[in-house]
Amino acid sequence: MIAICNVCESALSVSLYESLGTASITTMNQMIEGTTEVRFCSHCGHVQTSELPSLVEYYANEYEINATSDEEDQLYKVVDGRKVYRAEHQASVLMSKISFRDGLRVLDYGCAKSATLKKVLTRHSGIKPFLFDVTDRYVPFWERFPQDVQWSTHTPNPDWFGTMDVVLSFYALEHVSDLTQALLNVKRLLKTGGIFYFLVPNMYHNVADFVVADHVNHFSASSLAYLLQRHGFGEIEVDEQIHDAAFVVKARFIGEGAGMDTPDGDALARLREEALHIAQYWNTFAARVKEYEGMVGDGAMAIYGAGFYGNFISTLLMFPERISCFVDQNEYLRGKRIMSKPIVAPQDIPDEVSHVLVGLNPVIAKSVIGQIEQWQGKSLEFFYL
């Protein structure tokens, strides 16, 4: 069967990458059956992972984000010793991009707990919030929302069509194989002239996105522009600097007269080379981890990072029992375990640990480790990916 691009519907090229083994790892660090296979679109610059059959069951029964409590969140970064969580940063960026006013109808599409919109409401209580997700599991959080809110699950409420001033989406479109239907839903919801504002991962700034099994779409600035223009959006802004490892996108729904730009051939060639470079990184990843593990000898090890990188490393180890713990600065992970090993704060790393495998985005890994004051002067050896 010929693979078709989710963005432009062109036939995709041969695989850039195919994972080893018969299991792949997801956003939520779950192992699911199937091989991760990644292709490049030479027409629009999109990178795409073949959708695994087991994803349907995964989304229905396992996928959830920060659902332990209202406060639980992912750690975005540590700035001058202060922990900044993702919803806080996303709300700050959103308010810098959109001028909110009383009465504005704002829909969070694929919202989960809608933590970002909730933070915006603390500053702009006069806007009218609406929530949509494909599952009912977040309804208890919506029932505790700080003000009156309307919500819909599984399919958007038809009464909302053509009424929204702003549609928001945070890290949802990378999961959606039928982008045409998703954009159709957004267009139906927006008023003409309304704003579609969304975040998706930037694989070129965080190579982990390339091998996340449930991320079927790996966007580029080129493929994002193509997708939006194809569906009647104009005034497209794609910001890849303001949020680490993400594209922050803002576009206005114009309708049929939006127009299309021809993708730049040289830019597409550069994107393909970058994608090939990332594929090569992952093709040698397992060998590098195993080589380092062999060099450690009998030394006790820990893994820094309880997210995707840390979990991915743990699946590759020949002797995982030698891992004493996982280390992470996210306070919401205290008391949780990976591979039956505790997740601890940096200051609580066991004294016997001599080697730390750093499971972080390689772009920021050394900087993050260098800022951990509790480890200054400790005799720890670090393995960077």
Rank of each mutant, 00 (worst) to 15 (best):
H218T: 06
Y226F: 15
R334L: 14
E71G: 03
N330I: 01
D80G: 04
H355T: 00
G299I: 03
R101Q: 13
H277E: 12
Y292Q: 00
W160I: 03
G126V: 07
A246D: 04
V93Y: 08
A11L: 13
I303W: 06
N185H: 15
S340G: 14
E293F: 02
S125V: 08
E62N: 14
Y17L: 11
D178R: 11
F219C: 04
N361D: 01
E293H: 02
H231C: 08
Y292N: 01
E293Q: 06
A225E: 14
G126W: 10
A286Q: 11
C41D: 10
N61D: 12
L316D: 05
L12E: 06
Y304R: 01
L271A: 06
N283R: 15
E256G: 15
R144L: 12
G259H: 14
N185T: 07
V176E: 13
T49G: 10
V120P: 03
F100Q: 09
K83G: 01
G305Q: 03
N311V: 01
V216W: 10
G294Y: 00
A300D: 03
G162T: 07
N311P: 01
E51Y: 09
E71F: 04
Q90L: 15
H355V: 08
V344M: 06
G21Y: 08
G294E: 00
G232A: 11
K77H: 12
D298I: 00
G162H: 11
R86F: 00
E71H: 05
R337W: 01
P140H: 11
H355Y: 09
E57T: 14
F319C: 00
G194S: 09
